[in-house]
Each structure stands twice: as C-alpha cells, then as structure tokens.
C-alpha cells in the first residue's frame, strides 16, 4: 500500500491531484459522472467581484497537443458564487475546496477574498494574477514582482486561509515574481497559468479566436511548465503546486520530482471528463512500478 497523502499548507490531501480552475466549473458537471470526492481537492471557476460574460466567441481553438481558450473569466460574480454555487458544490463535494479568485484592482482581490474567507468549505485561496484573457487586470499583476507582492499582501490582510498565488509563465523571470510573492506572505505558489498563444484560420486569413489571442494549454506545454516548477520550487520554501499539460499519473510524478507538492490537472478534464478520477486511480500503480512508497519522498527529487 503506497502513501499518496500530502500536506498542502496545513490541510491534508488524500492525494495530490487537483483539477485546475476553469476546467472543472464548480464541480457538479463532473459529479454527475463520478464521485469527485476521490480527488485531492479541486480549484473552482475563477471568480471576480462582479459578474462577467467574458470575451466574444469563438473563444476556443485546436492546437497540436493542446488548445487555446480566451474565455475571459466568465463567472456569476462573488455574491452569486457564495449564495448559489457553493451550496450546490457542498452537496457533491465534502472536502475543503480551493477558491480561485481574479480581479482588476488590488481592492477587487481583497474584497472577493474577504468574502470567501468566511466560507467554511473554502480551504485555500488561489489568487490568479495571471489570466492572459482580460485587459487591464489579471496577468498584469503577475508580470511584475511589485504588483504581485501588493496583491499578495492585500489578500493576506483579509484572510486567515492559506493564500496560494497562481503565476503566469508569460514573463522573463518567473522566479523573481515567485520570490516577491513569498516575501509578501504567500503560503504557496501555483504555476503555470496558460501561455499566450494564437491561431489563424487559413481560409479567412483571420485569427480563429475573436479576441485574437488566448491561453495555450494541454500536453504540449508540459515541458515548459515542468521547467518553471523546477526553477520556482528551488527558489522558494513555500509549497508549490505544479500544473500545465498534466494528463496522466506519470506526469503527476514528474511534476512532483520537479518540486511540486501537489499537481493541478487542467485541459485534460475537457477532453476526457474522467481524467481526474483516472489519474487518482492510476497513481498508486504508477508509484509502485517506480518503487515509490511515499509520494512525499519524491518532492523535489530532481533538484
């Protein structure tokens, strides 16, 4: 019997597998398919202060071994997330959930996180300073160490829950941003958000995505994500959650060897709705095959 339990900022996870924000809704679409309590936890749909429709469609494009999305943080706004989505989520998921938050100003982040701090079912706050699909916010906070630190401090001031800052790979030096967040009090770092990308419709000679560009995700980005998880986890002492193109138990193990304490699974959920369950169930056998008895033993093994 192998051990898959990990500790993430003081909260125990049965396993390190976490469906990523934006690929798992508020859980209940997937709860119709399988018991989502088999997951370590999941990160719910990115929530903002006000309701958002997001960007115009088309906002999805096919890529080699991946996809581009330019959804643009569509969500019903924090008040309805608390009054409508969380009660529904609570019926199907009985573990602490990770709340994913985005904003357009430091005050937005603090306001939204302050309300979520009172929600018992929320275990961690995952603060997205890295959405590539919104203008005047999102990623702009995650591309500059001082701005990322400012958001971190503002959120830390309004909550006692662990604060995990989700970083953008669309920067020259992700390590300096991770360090700035850690110095500002972040309890964890998650990475990577999507890589800015685009496709052109050859027949029309126009971008496929209405918003021109979008976030590139899927198996194609795994090596880039792994490299950044390796760099960041070497540079910070807080827990790191690795994500980007993870689609099987072996990818989870590789991310953890690179330094991740837990691993998020994103685009894989969209093409295989059972991906989360499949990865959780195949993890013990994949560990046994490699002679890993305790998954904690491999965290940062490659350092």
């Amino acid at each position: 019997m192998v051990n898959t339990k990990v500790d993430l900022c003081g909260i125990a996870l049965d396993n390190p597998v976490i469906p990523a924000s934006g690929t798992f809704g508020f859980g209940y679409e997937f709860a119709e398919l399988y018991d989502i309590n088999c997951l370590g936890t999941f990160s719910f749909k990115g929530t903002t202060r006000e309701a958002r429709f997001g960007n115009p469609t088309p906002r999805i494009a096919e890529c080699t071994a991946g996809m581009i999305n330019a959804v643009g943080l569509q969500n019903p706004g924090i008040e309805r997330v608390i009054s409508e989505e969380l009660p529904k989520l609570k019926k199907v998921f009985h573990k602490p959930v990770m709340a994913n938050v985005s904003g357009f100003s430091v005050e937005d982040y603090a306001y939204t996180c302050g309300l979520l701090d009172r929600e018992e079912q929320v275990g961690w706050l995952e603060v997205n300073v890295s959405c590539p699909n919104v203008h005047g916010g999102g990623m702009s906070f995650g591309t500059e160490p001082r701005a990322a630190a400012e958001v971190t401090r503002a959120v830390k001031a309004v909550t006692h829950k662990p604060v995990i800052i989700k970083l953008s790979p669309n920067v020259t030096d992700i390590v300096s941003i991770a360090r700035a967040c850690e110095d500002a009090g972040a309890d964890g770092i998650s990475l990577i958000n999507t890589l800015l990308g685009m496709r052109i419709d050859l027949k029309r000679g126009r971008p496929v995505i209405a918003n021109t560009m979008g976030g590139f995700s899927g198996p194609a980005i795994f090596p880039v994500a792994l490299r950044m998880v390796y760099q960041v986890s070497k540079a910070v002492s807080v827990p790191v959650i690795g994500m980007g193109g993870v689609s099987c138990a072996e990818d989870v193990i590789e991310m953890m060897m690179a330094g991740a304490r837990a691993v998020e699974v994103g685009a894989a959920n969209l093409v295989d709705p059972f991906a989360g369950k499949r990865i959780v169930e195949s993890l013990p056998a994949a560990m046994e095959k490699l002679g890993i008895e305790n998954i904690n033993d491999i965290i940062g093994k490659a350092h």
């Binding site: 690929t23 469609t57 088309p58 999805i60 959804v71 959920n269 969209l270 093409v271």
Partner: peptide, 17 residues
C-alpha cells in the same frame, strides 16, 4: 452552433448571452 472546448459545460468556451 459554436466552437466548443469540452461539450459538457465545464469550460464555458461556447457561451451565448
């Protein structure tokens, strides 16, 4: 008709107002 990511409601890729 709309370009879809997942086809089952998870990704919000195909929304319409």
């Amino acid at each position: 008709e709309e370009r879809m990511g997942c086809g089952f409601g998870a990704c919000m890729g195909c929304s319409v107002e």
